[in-house]
Amino acid sequence: MEEDVVSLLQIGRLIDVQWTLGVAVSSNTCKNINSPFVAMAVKVQDSSGKVVSKSFELSLMEFQSFSRQMKDIATVLETM
């Protein structure tokens, strides 16, 4: 019973990360958009085995912010 409660409260684990670095070259409204982006896809598996995936696109600035946060986590974990 206690185990069931615990598994309900358990948050999923990150099981996969895929990424692509690309450039949006042009569109029907602009011939030279020339905007680099990072496309990412993350997969999270919960304790029941269900997998949820999410894909998203980051501008370079958004990616830098994300990367900084991940490094911050690492720094804190290291000191523990």
């Binding site: 358990q10 999923g12 684990r13 990150l14 986590i73």
Partner: peptide
């Protein structure tokens, strides 16, 4: 989306980063 990472999985994520 929420997920947990231990040192090992964080290391892998950072490798991608």
């Amino acid at each position: 989306i929420q997920f947990e990472m231990n040192s090992e999985s964080l290391r892998k994520l950072l490798k991608s980063v």
